[in-house]
Nucleic acid binder design. Structure first.
Lengths: 153, 153
DNA sequence: CGTATTCTCTATCGATTTAGTAGGCTAAAA
DNA sequence: TTTTAGCCTACTAAATCGATAGAGAATACG
């Protein structure tokens, strides 16, 4: 399960991706658009900025913006920043590894072997899906839905 | 991230699978073998029993045992019983679905589309991995390790 | 310059969840 | 009918999560 924080963060990133190129967006506007508690969003954006995913400018005309192209920011990187890891157990995490106390031999731990497969499958999806791709996919669905409606007229 | 409860549960199931056929195992013995707090394990085993994964017998000679063959119990079923779901967000869960409040249209929600892929990938692994397979895999690793040692002598 | 604007940072708080404990109850053997 | 061993409910401590408050620091602009 991903946290609400991570979900908010992804929402915000996608919103910024949609508005990419139109300059900095205010936290307040983003919060309003995405219906995210403003103060909470503040922390999230800051974390994403400190991780190099977002950029910011202070003062009038300031706000937040993507530090890179939407096609170069992956869902995986955002989830790792906000949730710490993508792995189902710490002992198979690449970014937040922690030796597990219970099993004697990590190499032959059956649970670990399976969870490693899970981690790899999840990472494969999230690390190969960019914000841009997500936008395209979701607009494809919308178009398709519209098409169906058009036919029915 | 799976909970410690789920991890304990999987450990216990694998231990019972290893000892499958030798009659009921005492909670106390399982707790000792797997180094799991006994009282906590008690709750976990009960939950697995109520879900039909384990069977039990009271009184002398009693204990817990697998209700089915190790080849017929999947990691997925155990995780769902103990963690409630396998999905990263409630809106893509088959077993613990909850409509998400934030996105207007679920069908075209980009986050949901990606998380659905993640869920499917995770479910595909966990639902197609039985306790038996886990045991085989982990003993394969052990054998391989042993072989290396043999060569080095 | 100085003031309005907007992000930055630290601290705190309440609610929920997680991990674990306690203890009496019930069923089955012997 | 006593012992054994699971069943069940309740409780609690600690951690995490979601959210808020408010002062501080940087930037633009008149």
């Amino acid at each position: 399960m991903i946290s609400k924080k991570t979900k908010y963060g992804l929402q915000a990133l996608l919103s910024l991706a949609r508005q990419h190129g139109s300059g900095p967006i205010l936290i307040a506007d983003l919060a309003e658009q995405e219906q995210i508690p403003k103060k909470f969003l503040e922390l999230i954006l800051l974390q994403l900025k400190n991780a190099g995913i977002l950029g910011s400018r202070k003062g009038k005309g300031g706000g937040y913006f993507l530090a890179k192209d939407p096609g170069q920011i992956t869902m995986g990187s955002a989830v790792r920043v906000l949730d710490g890891t993508v792995a189902p157990v710490p002992c198979v995490s690449e970014t937040a590894y922690q030796k597990c106390t219970e099993c004697a031999d990590e190499e032959s731990c059956g649970i670990r072997l399976v969870m490693k497969d899970v981690r790899d499958a999840v990472a494969d999806i999230l690390d190969n899906t960019t914000l841009k791709e997500v936008l395209v996919r979701s607009s494809d669905v919308s178009k398709k839905a519209k098409k169906v409606i058009d036919y029915s007229i």
